[in-house]
Simulated scan of single mutants.
Amino acid sequence: MTNISNLYPVDDTQQASILLVDDTPENIDLLAASLRDDYQLKVALSGARALAIAQDKDMPKPDLILLDVMMPEMDGYEVCSRLKADPTTAHIPVIFVTAKHDAGDEEYGFDLGAVDYITKPFTPRLVRARVRTHLALHNQNQQLFKQVQERTQALQDSKIRIIQHLGRAVEYKDNETGAHVIRMSHITRLLAEHIVNDQAWVERIFQAAPMHDVGKIGISDDILRKPGKLTPEEWVQMKHHPLIGAQILESDDDPLLLMASVISLTHHEKWDGSGYPNNLMADQIPLEGRIVAIADVIDALMSKRPYKEPWTTEQTIEYVDEQKGKHFDPGLADLAIKLMPHIVEIRALYPDEPSDPLGYSFFKLAH
């Protein structure tokens, strides 16, 4: 039979740390004698002390806990339950050391999250074997968890790169520069992090914002690049691009694509209901759509276009204030005006560069 400790050896370059918990010093001495040559040992003579050691934020967590069941005030079952309820200690393997032999007691302990039982009286050889096995299993689980995290992150990175490529495809279609897309995404994040207390949501809107105009892929170049005013018929076609983008990005279960789809669909809606494509108004417009709408307009106003010179900061502030409650969410308009110095800094960090036909490498968005 293959020894699992040979497959997943404990790192011998740094001794594993084991917490011994028992209210009887003689039992602690027996366990310590069995393990002290191979492991770093910590000792607790009560359940409360064991929790204090394991949950100490300033000390490394034990790699494994040997826990007596029958202790006064707080028994081993309660200690185990509290350890497993705490995210910082839930991963630590717990082995009960007890004189109880009842199958019901063992089942209860396993239900609480223990990985094994050692019954008293025990032999040093048995203790060492059980400890070695469960440290190896724990090491295996940690390695697998790390691999899953790495692969999950790789998939997330690939998804973001695909989204960035889609955004770059829109740049080829439209007259707007890549720097505009980067700036409005950073402005979007700036606004979001001041009103949403959820860093994951803030990061998601930052990554999704570049997709706001992906629906322009489905609009004729003659319309997108027309230097003059659009005819009523052309304008009807242009108003379809939010719907096209939403259809391209729609997803049943991917939070990033779902948010990108919502942004595409709603970033041309206006607070007073005069926007398109669905004439939503006020809080009917999802928050992500409202944030991207104002971020997109602010940077567009302050940018040079073939048909206009860049607006000054003062002109932009005046326009945003005038459109408060009309085009823009009033609260977001006030926030954008308050944060205008930071918006100006973002624009300075990501200027348009004429030497780059796309304005900027889209991958600067990730930084």
Score class of each variant (00 low, 15 high):
Ile217Tyr: 02
Arg290Pro: 03
Asp254Tyr: 00
Glu26Gly: 08
Thr313Ala: 15
Asp221Arg: 13
Ser274His: 07
Leu155Val: 13
Pro227Arg: 04
Asp12Phe: 14
Asp252Gln: 14
Ile317Asn: 03
Ala50Arg: 01
Ser303His: 05
Val10Asp: 10
Arg183Trp: 13
Asp105Pro: 07
Glu234Val: 00
Ala209Arg: 08
Ala333Leu: 00
Asp283Trp: 11
Leu301His: 12
Leu257Asn: 06
Pro124Tyr: 06
Asp116Cys: 10
Glu322Ile: 06
Asp68Lys: 03
Ile294Phe: 08
Pro255Glu: 04
Gly331Asp: 05
Val97Glu: 02
Lys173Glu: 11
Ile4Ser: 09
Phe122Asn: 01
Val202Thr: 01
Pro255Lys: 03
Pro330Asp: 05
His138Phe: 15
Asp213Val: 09
Thr89Asn: 03
Leu190Ser: 07
Asp111Asn: 07
Ala16Met: 05
Ala52Val: 03
Asp283Val: 08
Thr231Glu: 03
Leu349Val: 14
Trp271Val: 02
Met302Leu: 11
Gln156Ser: 11
Val131Tyr: 00
Asn141Ile: 11
Arg130Cys: 07
His101Ala: 15
Ser220Val: 10
Gly325Thr: 09
Pro25Asp: 11
Ala295Cys: 00
Arg130Met: 08
Glu288Ser: 10
Thr313Gln: 15
Asn278Trp: 12
Gln247Trp: 12
Thr133Met: 12
Ala16Gly: 08
Gly167Leu: 05
His268Tyr: 07
Tyr108Arg: 12
Met281Pro: 07
Trp201Met: 11
Met74Glu: 04
Lys304Phe: 09
Ile346Pro: 02
Arg168Phe: 12
Pro351Thr: 13
Pro277Gly: 00
Met59Gly: 09
Ile294Thr: 04
Ser264Glu: 02
Leu243Ser: 11
Leu41Ile: 04
Lys61Ile: 08
Asp321Arg: 13
Ala103Asp: 15
Arg305Phe: 00
Ile285Asn: 05
Gln140Asn: 11
Ala169Gly: 14
Asp12Glu: 14
Ala293Tyr: 09
Ile187Lys: 05
Val94Thr: 03
Lys216Tyr: 00
Asp253Leu: 08
Gln164Pro: 00
Ser261Asp: 02
Asp321Trp: 08
Ile219Leu: 04
Ala208Val: 00
Arg49Gly: 07
Ala179Asp: 13
Gly215His: 02
Leu67Met: 02
His138Leu: 10
Glu73Ser: 07
Arg347Asn: 08
Thr13Tyr: 10
Arg151Asn: 15
His268Gln: 06
Leu30Ile: 02
Ile18Glu: 01
Pro341His: 08
Glu314Pro: 06
Gly76Phe: 07
Val21Gln: 03
His101Thr: 15
Arg82Leu: 05
Val79His: 09
Tyr360Arg: 15
Arg204Asp: 08
Thr188Ala: 06
Pro330Asn: 05
Gly245Arg: 04
Asp329Leu: 02
Ile162Ser: 10
Ile65Arg: 01
Ala103Thr: 14
Gln153Asp: 14
Val43His: 06
Lys304Thr: 11
His101Ser: 15
Ala85Thr: 00
Asp37Phe: 05
Leu126Arg: 15
Pro310Val: 03
Asp356Ile: 15
Arg132Ile: 10
Pro242Thr: 00
Ser81Asp: 10
Ala33Thr: 12
Thr312Asp: 04
Ala44Phe: 00
Thr312Ile: 04
Lys173Gln: 11
